[in-house]
Design a protein around this nucleic acid. Structure first.
Length: 415
RNA sequence: GGGGGAAUGUCCCGAGCGGCAAAGGGGGCGGACUGUAAAUCCGCUGGCUACGCCUUCGUAGGUUCGAGUCCUACUUCCCCCA
């Protein structure tokens, strides 16, 4: 698997980013000869990227680190269509306004990982060339190179066809547009590599074929493995939803916690993929066993959070976690909600306080959680569901600590 | 075009003689054990102003004291024949 001569492929390979490469020797040689331009596309299906995208972002990061030129391609055009790959049903079409808003949200995340100064990296948007296409012209220039027979044979649409779920003509075109993007980037920027998750293989290879047919150029594909945790769950999902990169949607503290709670079996793999620590350091951490592996998890959480939110935010998160979990003390910068003092004086029910804090979804859930011993007010279990909070529950700092389970804590601040 | 079957708790799979808030899994959450891990064991897994009330079984009607369960039409999917 290794034996690559270029820094670029050697690093990606030893850190576990490589699933498939279309022409490993050819790409290795190209990367050895000089700077290679490569891209990854991101569709604007949500207002923020999440942990599932992080692998792809790190690949662009390493590309730049090893002396090449990454392009982050915003899918302002392709998001209008929606990628049907491996989806069992069509996704709802997003409005133009939503797409625009989502793109804005996504853009910000990249600056933490890529240095855009002096054209060392670039952000582009396929809306710039896709939206103005002339239909008939496009069909004659590009469409004629695609075989429907072949497109129907791809694994990515197999699920849909097997279930005889409708695959609309709109979605069917996604692959063609993505292939066209690749060729367009090749013409515009000399881009010869497209990377992506393993589910993108078919789409990427279509672009390679199209490049050869239209312009007789040699393009390359590199995909990363689909990430799951050691126990088989998809990466980046928690009870609360996706693990967002945008601090507005997921606080740095919660982001840090997500990594801190990594399963033992995943720690080394994640250190390689999601941090920039040198391999020697990772090897050292990998040697930790038993309870000591918690140190490795803290390093993991610290490094990943630092990359995304900065050193200060990472240290604050680590400190809050230390106080909360290791000292059992009340850390002042836990997530906080504000409640008017008048409501507390009026006797705010414990159950509704937990609902207000967003720790549980309903009074009923709060009631059940209390019955199961899962609710705590200032570290004391709630046994009476009809109890109310009062001024007397306020700690010295004027807050009440609400805990659901051992890991979720919210401060209720009276104002 | 003809014939047969199926849609269940808005996470998924899946049982369901006309009395059902609806079996059982998975997943998730909580508890115990640990190391803020995994594995294991236990509990919970419609809503509410809560010994009662309200809303749920593809959609819309109907029969019935009462329907997820029976009838009709429609929608979507699966299988067989042409």
């Amino acid at each position: 698997m290794s034996g690559f001569k270029s820094d670029f492929l050697r690093v990606l390979s030893e850190r576990g980013f490589v699933h498939q490469i279309s022409d490993p020797e050819g790409l290795d040689a190209a990367a050895l000869k000089g700077p290679v331009t490569g891209y990854i596309g991101y569709d604007a299906t949500a207002s923020s990227l999440h942990v599932g995208h992080l692998t792809q972002i790190m690949m662009l990061h390493w590309m730049q680190e090893t002396g090449h030129r990454p392009i982050a391609l915003m899918g302002g055009g392709t998001t209008m269509i929606g990628d049907p790959s491996f989806k069992d049903e069509a996704r709802k079409l997003l409005s133009v306004e939503d797409i625009g808003r989502n793109l804005e949200g996504i853009r910000g995340s990249f600056s933490r990982y890529l240095d855009f100064d002096g054209g060392r990296a670039e952000m582009m948007n396929n809306a710039d060339w896709l939206l103005g296409l002339n239909y008939v012209e496009f069909l004659r220039d590009v469409g004629r190179h695609f075989s429907v027979n072949r497109m129907l044979s791809f694994d990515s649409v197999k699920l849909r066809l097997d279930r005889e779920q409708s695959l609309s003509f709109l979605e069917f075109n996604y692959m063609i547009l993505q292939a066209y993007d690749f060729v367009e980037l090749n013409s515009r920027r000399g881009c010869v590599l497209q990377m992506g998750g393993s589910d993108q293989w078919g789409n990427i290879v279509s672009g390679i074929d199209l490049g050869r047919r239209m312009n007789d150029v040699q393009l390359y594909a590199l995909t990363s493995p689909l990430l799951t945790t050691a126990s088989g769950a998809k990466m980046g999902k928690t009870a609360a939803g996706a693990v967002w990169l945008d601090a507005e949607l997921l606080s740095p503290y919660d982001f840090w916690q997500y990594w801190r709670n990594t399963e033992d079996a995943d720690v080394v793999r994640f250190l390689k993929l999601f941090t920039t620590l040198p391999m020697s350091e990772i090897d050292r951490l990998a040697a930790l066993g038993g309870a000591e592996i918690n140190e490795a998890k803290k390093v993991l959480a610290g490094e990943v959070t630092t990359l995304l939110h900065g050193r200060a935010a990472a240290e604050a998160a680590a400190e809050t976690a230390r106080k909360t979990f290791e000292e059992g003390a009340l850390a002042g910068d836990l997530p906080t909600i504000e409640v008017p003092m008048a409501e507390i004086d009026a006797g705010l029910g414990v159950l509704s306080a937990f609902v207000r804090a967003g720790l549980v979804a309903s009074n009923g859930e709060a009631r059940r959680a209390a019955a199961g011993g899962g609710l705590k007010v200032n570290d004391a279990s709630v046994t009476d569901p009809t109890a109310s909070l009062s001024r007397a529950d306020l700690t010295g700092d004027g807050v009440i600590k609400l805990s659901f389970g051992r890991k979720k804590h919210i401060l209720l601040r009276a104002v």
